[in-house]
Computed example of a mutant assay.
Amino acid sequence: MADRIASDHEAVQTHRITLGTAGRTSRPELELPESIDASDGDVVRLTLDGRACYALVEAGLDGTARLRGAFENARLAREGDGENRLLEWIDDSGVKPGRSLLLDVLSTGYHYGLREPGQRVVYTVLEPPKGSLSDIADSIG
């Protein structure tokens, strides 16, 4: 069942992050705060303007967790294939590298929301899956 929660609700933990670029390229990336429970290779839900996407957590050269894209489903996020919704969101909002953004923790380790400072967003939050596909396969076999 989906719950709706506002970005200014006391249950939402918000982190101020900066839109950066990957190395010397102009590709945008979001460095996640150390307190975010995400590791290299994890796929997380990322809500952008009410649109739920999926993002692959990648380790930067310094080992910090980063997001470099947001895609329609988890498979596309892992493959980095398809329309990058994060790039679209950045273009549509006019956010430039070096600008602050707000990352809302909606479900630790699973679902996050991205918004510009001063904006209030109402998110639709789904519960994380109870187990992975491998867990389900193990329980059957």
Rank of each mutant, 00 (worst) to 15 (best):
G94F: 09
L61I: 01
H9D: 06
S100H: 08
G60M: 05
L87I: 11
T14G: 05
G94D: 06
D135V: 13
K96W: 12
E83S: 11
T64G: 11
T18D: 12
Y112H: 10
E29S: 14
Q13F: 00
R85Y: 00
P97E: 00
T108L: 09
V95C: 03
Y54T: 02
I5P: 08
N73F: 07
E29K: 15
G63N: 13
R51S: 00
L87S: 09
R120H: 04
L46I: 02
I36N: 03
A22M: 09
L30G: 06
L86S: 04
T18M: 12
A65I: 07
T47D: 06
R78H: 03
Y123M: 03
L114Q: 03
L32E: 02
L76I: 04
D138G: 11
E29T: 15
V57Y: 02
V57N: 04
V122D: 14
D62H: 11
A74V: 08
E127N: 13
Y123E: 01
E88G: 05
R4L: 07
E10A: 12
G41A: 04
E79R: 15
I136G: 07
L30Y: 06
D49T: 13
Y123R: 05
I36D: 01
G113A: 02
I36P: 01
E127G: 13
T14R: 08
Q13I: 04
G80Y: 09
L106V: 04
Y54Q: 10
S35N: 14
P129D: 10
D135S: 12
R16I: 11
A38C: 10
V121W: 01
K96A: 09
G80K: 07
E79K: 15
H9G: 06
G80D: 09
N73Y: 04
